[in-house]
Design a protein around this nucleic acid. Structure first.
Lengths: 226, 226
DNA sequence: ACCTGAACACCGTTCAAGT
DNA sequence: ACCTGAACACCGTTCAAGT
């Protein structure tokens, strides 16, 4: 569609650095939500050869890691800037995580695959531990709660992002159905599925995410109250 | 390594069907846990050209869907054959789901990406609804619980499988660390991460899975008791 | 020191040709 | 009716050559 847009028209040779590349990658992820990012597209967007990125990142995984870390940092900022109870602030952070995964699908999709462990990721862990410590949990219980929450949040956000990425006509607000169809299956053999058929098909991705978060946080409150 | 093994040495022309292809794919997924399955490898294993599969499946996604549905069916069988309380039986099913994803990494990795919606998948939904109905939950609460559990189980199992798939030396029993390293990050800026550093690094994938399942089922019991 | 561009070893998928 | 094999349009990655 768009002609290869050299970012600065005058510049003969573009001077790259890691920051610029990650910026371009994030921009691309947001602008082309239904396409996996390739070095070719990235190079076009930066006005640079497709292989130029290898001067600054060992491989594509390292690049994705850096981009993912930025997103994790943003999600943590949202949590830090919020006010309210520990649960409300944790929910702000977790919802922002899913929103950002949906906004940058090709990055968010990697959330379950890569552990970035940069400053953004580490600050997210710190924030979650902080909120859970406020709930009253300690030691092993604290860590189990962190595991449950971060595991769910990352892997389910990644699933939501993958859904957008793979379906060219998918909405980006988490409103894609969790179960798209029962196809040609005769549901008479599955009485409960049959009874709840319409409700199951009406359930969207973000609803599933919210349900998981709510359940886990209910369990955290229960454990903390004992 | 291995020479292209035509399955039946005598057969001039191999006669394919969907079942054979899915069988071969599952065998390959189990035997080569650190490699994504390609049509080339699948064709070699079946003694057939790489493009022969297109007679039986529209594309690779449809094939993966069929294989995933088989796995979901097995996980459901494990739950059905178990005895005990609804929670114990549900746990059997959920643990089996993760185990199978780890045993067939290249199939399990797709669990969060594809909704198979074949008989295996549908029977899994039916089983989960059945167990949750036994807990006493009804209607919206039942569906929210189902959403939380199936969302977590599928997406987190898929994350575990991806971990095996992408790391050539990864163990296949879920014992891969959830956080592999804090790299070069100076943890003095993250006091809680720093305090729990060793415990965080000691946490493995299956522990995270168990923690999530336990939390969600605790919440289900809490909701059911009201 | 850093970017280019040819080259390599793959992928999934299509399609005309075989049997 | 079903499998073959050449061909296509991609990928990530390497490396010698440029500047």
């Amino acid at each position: 569609m768009t002609e290869a847009p050299a970012e600065q028209a005058g510049a003969k040779r573009v001077r790259l650095d890691q920051r610029m590349i990650v910026d371009a990658m994030l921009r691309l992820a947001r602008d082309e939500p239904h396409a996996r990012i390739t070095f070719k597209r990235l190079g076009e967007a930066l006005g640079v050869d497709a292989t130029a990125m290898y001067r600054h990142f060992r491989n594509k995984d390292e690049l994705l890691k850096a981009a993912l870390d930025r997103i994790m940092g943003w999600a943590t900022e949202a949590g830090r800037e919020s006010s309210g109870t520990w649960r409300e602030r944790l929910e702000v952070h977790l919802m922002r995580t899913a929103e950002l995964a949906l906004e940058y699908p090709s990055i968010g999709a990697e959330g379950a695959v890569i552990d970035s462990v940069g400053p953004g990721d580490t600050s997210a862990i710190e924030f979650m531990l902080e909120m859970l410590a406020e709930s009253g949990l300690r030691d092993e219980e604290l860590l189990r709660a962190y595991a449950a929450i971060s595991g769910f949040s990352l892997s389910q956000s990644s699933a939501l992002a993958n859904d957008v990425l793979r379906h060219p006509d998918a909405a980006r607000d988490g409103s894609e159905p969790w179960i798209s169809t029962f196809g040609s299956i005769n549901l008479s053999g599955y009485p409960l599925v049959n009874r709840h058929r319409d409700a199951l098909l009406a359930m969207d991705g973000l609803t599933v995410y919210r349900a998981g978060i709510a359940a886990i946080l209910d369990a955290v409150e229960l454990a903390a109250s004992r």
